[in-house]
C-alpha cells in the first residue's frame, strides 16, 4: 500500500515537474548566444530532464518517510518491519546509478567534448577573425592583428571588444603586463569569461591559450548585461572591476567600427 501511494505520487510529481520544466527550458541558463553556449545549454537541459525524476524520488521519499513513517510516541519500540536486504531494490538502485552515470559520461559529456574538440582543429580555423586578448592587472586589452589595431577603445576610453555575428573568432589569450614599468612578464592567472557565451578559459602567465567561438545573435552590454567580458579568476583587489563591454554586431557594422578604430590609431588616414 505504501509502495503504491509513494509510487503514484512520485510519477505524478515527475510528470508535473517535467511539464513545468518544458516551459522554462529555453531560459534555464538565462542568456546564451554562442555555438558553445548552445552545447552547454542543451547539456544542462538534458541533465535536468533525466535528473528530475531521480531528484524527486529522493526528495519525495524523505518527505513521505517523515509524514508516513514517523512514530506517534517518542518511546523506543522496535519498528514492526525488520529487514536488512532487498535484492530487487539494491539491484535496481545500483544498476540504475551505473547506467545513469555512464549515460551522462557518454552523453552529454563525451559527445559534446568531441564536438568542442573538433571545432578547435586547425583545419576548421582558417579564416577566423583573430583577437589578441591580453589580461593584465586589471584590464582586458583587445588587439586585432589582422587590422593592425593594438588596443581598441570606445568613446569613453574603455577597452572595448566588438565582434561580428556568425563569424568564427579566435581569441588568443595571454597574461602579462605590457605597461609594467620593469617586468612585463609579471602576471597572475585570470579567466576570460563572457557570461553570454557560456564558457570561460583561464589565462595563465607564460602560456598562450586559444578559444574559438561563433556568436549567434547581435547584442551588446547595453541590451543585456551578460554580454560583457569578465575576469572570473580572482586576480587581486581590482578583480571585481576587471570587465569590458562587448558588442556583437553585423558584418557591415563591424567593418565600420574597424575603420573608425583604424582612424583613431592612425593606421589609416582619412
Amino acid at each position: 500500500m505504501d509502495l503504491v501511494i509513494f509510487g503514484v505520487v512520485w510519477i505524478i510529481l515527475s510528470v508535473l515537474a517535467e511539464w513545468g520544466f518544458n516551459h522554462i527550458r529555453a531560459n534555464t541558463m538565462y542568456y546564451l548566444i554562442s555555438n558553445e553556449g548552445t552545447i552547454a545549454h542543451h547539456a544542462f537541459n538534458f541533465l535536468t530532464t533525466v535528473l528530475t525524476p531521480i531528484f524527486l524520488f529522493v526528495i519525495w521519499y524523505l518527505i513521505f518517510a517523515a509524514i508516513r513513517f514517523h512514530a506517534k510516541s517518542p518511546d523506543a519500540k522496535p519498528s514492526p518491519r525488520q529487514s536488512t536486504k532487498n535484492g530487487l531494490f539494491t539491484t535496481v538502485w545500483i544498476t540504475g546509478a551505473i547506467v545513469v552515470n555512464v549515460l551522462f559520461w557518454l552523453h552529454p559529456t563525451a559527445a559534446d567534448m568531441e564536438q568542442i574538440f573538433a571545432s578547435q582543429l586547425p583545419s576548421k580555423n582558417r579564416h577566423d577573425l583573430i583577437v589578441d586578448v591580453t589580461a593584465r592587472q586589471w584590464e582586458w586589452i583587445f588587439s586585432y592583428p589582422q587590422y593592425h589595431l593594438t588596443q581598441t577603445v570606445n568613446a569613453a576610453g574603455q577597452d572595448e571588444l566588438v565582434i561580428p555575428v556568425h563569424r568564427k573568432v579566435e581569441f588568443r589569450l595571454r597574461s602579462y603586463d605590457p605597461f609594467h614599468t620593469y617586468d612585463i612578464e609579471a602576471g597572475v592567472i585570470h579567466s576570460f569569461w563572457i557570461p553570454a557565451f557560456g564558457l570561460k578559459e583561464d589565462v595563465i602567465p607564460g602560456e598562450t591559450r586559444y578559444e574559438y567561438i561563433v556568436a549567434t545573435h547581435t547584442a551588446s552590454y547595453y541590451t543585456n548585461p551578460e554580454v560583457r567580458v569578465q575576469c572570473a579568476e580572482v586576480c587581486g583587489p581590482g578583480h571585481p572591476w576587471m570587465e569590458a563591454p562587448l558588442k556583437i554586431v553585423t558584418a557591415r557594422q563591424f567593418k565600420a567600427w574597424i575603420r573608425h578604430q583604424q582612424l583613431l590609431e592612425h593606421v589609416v588616414s582619412t
Binding site: A65, A71, P78, R81, A97, W105, M113
Partner: peptide
C-alpha cells in the same frame, strides 16, 4: 569528467542504505 561522474555511485550507496532503513519504519522524528 568520467571519475567525477562515477563518484556519485558510491555516494548513492549511503542514500540507498538510509532509504531502505526508513522504509515502513517507525521513525522517531
Amino acid at each position: 569528467a568520467f571519475f567525477t561522474e562515477m563518484i556519485s555511485i558510491p555516494t548513492g550507496f549511503g542514500y540507498m542504505a538510509a532509504i531502505g532503513t526508513l522504509w515502513q519504519s517507525r521513525y522517531r522524528l
